[in-house]
Design a protein around this nucleic acid. Sequence first.
DNA 1: ATTTTTGAACTGACCAGTCAGTGCAAAATA
DNA 2: TATTTTGCACTGACTGGTCAGTTCAAAAAT
Lengths: 209, 209
Amino acid sequence: MESSSARSGGSTRREATRQKLYEAAVTLIAEQGFSATTVDEIAERAGVAKGTVYYNFASKSVLFEELLRHGVGLLTASLKEAAERTAHEGGGKVDALDAMIRAGLVFIDRYPAFTQLYVAELWRTNRAWQSTLMVVRQEAVAVVEGVLREGVAAGEFSEEIDVQLTAAALVGMVLVAALDWKSFQPQRSLDDVHAALSRLLQGRVSGRV
Amino acid sequence: MESSSARSGGSTRREATRQKLYEAAVTLIAEQGFSATTVDEIAERAGVAKGTVYYNFASKSVLFEELLRHGVGLLTASLKEAAERTAHEGGGKVDALDAMIRAGLVFIDRYPAFTQLYVAELWRTNRAWQSTLMVVRQEAVAVVEGVLREGVAAGEFSEEIDVQLTAAALVGMVLVAALDWKSFQPQRSLDDVHAALSRLLQGRVSGRV
DNA sequence: ATTTTTGAACTGACCAGTCAGTGCAAAATA
DNA sequence: TATTTTGCACTGACTGGTCAGTTCAAAAAT
């Protein structure tokens, strides 16, 4: 009783199966896209029968949506943690942004397939999970926007900056640089990449120098 | 002789059909993805029979690959033109980067569907057109890298910058900010967006201030 | 005893690619 | 001028195959 069936919600066994399915699905969908990935493939890679997929998820789309929520939840938590940590250490908002850049890089380093898949689906329209994506995107970008807004309020950033656009641009900068890193020069260290992005960030986003 | 059957290469009619197919395909694939888009849909939206698609292109994949080449060709030409224009006007490399940002925004403003599709497919692996994408990506990013390198050589940029990573980051910044603009706040003007990105670019990428 | 998983067979919709045939304008022929 | 021929561009019904989702009895795990 105590070890196998965690009290809040589902059993451990079931949770482990779902986890295996997430991992199998994320890789395959990142490589091939959602439509080109078959449920049989996912089941096979997870080492599970096809029936199990449908025992655990209502449909292929639902599996994918829950996967998205799961992954973005991890990212958002990591970004928040980074921002709060710098605040505790008495750093300014530039430090917070810098820490979030690093947190983003660490996340992508750890879950490159998820990132790939997320980027590929984010700007699609006419898809079943479109609304899920919007919500989930907003959660992540909102963390960056929050820090920018606080920085403006504290006089640390120019009042002229457009919070929403700047947040999007920063996210894009990290996302694309990191995917480029993973795809085309994976031998580079995370510190290298972080240093290059820090350089871009420094200087003008903050005050007038 | 003169009107219907153009002698050099392809007829005008055929070229017009191919153009219609490109336009139909780019929208549908941007919305739904490659695999989820059917050849029947493409034909219907282009107002031709399915057989015509296969008369003009060897396969669905080939149609897509030629579409990619076509689109990125336009982008690359536009970026080069922007960089060269500033050079003629005696501007520095920062001006060149700024002009390229604007050229990128103008392109995305004009061909949002193509941009969407490009981003969505760029980091996929295991796809038939992977090599095409690599080539085509390199053409575009190389233009930015070239300007950065020239700027470093001329002493205008710090020697410490990592050309490849910085180029990727700049491209990502423009790409994501622009897609965000088109998707979530399309009422904003191009100048607004350009101003926000210029602010990010200024200051630290160039010398020590 | 209950929950979870298995595995294989089945259905029905959907889809990439094919192919025999059509329409038509220019060129060849009479 | 009137006619026949040529071949390019296009058509759309058809085929062979694929895949999401279903079903269920039996087995395994807890």
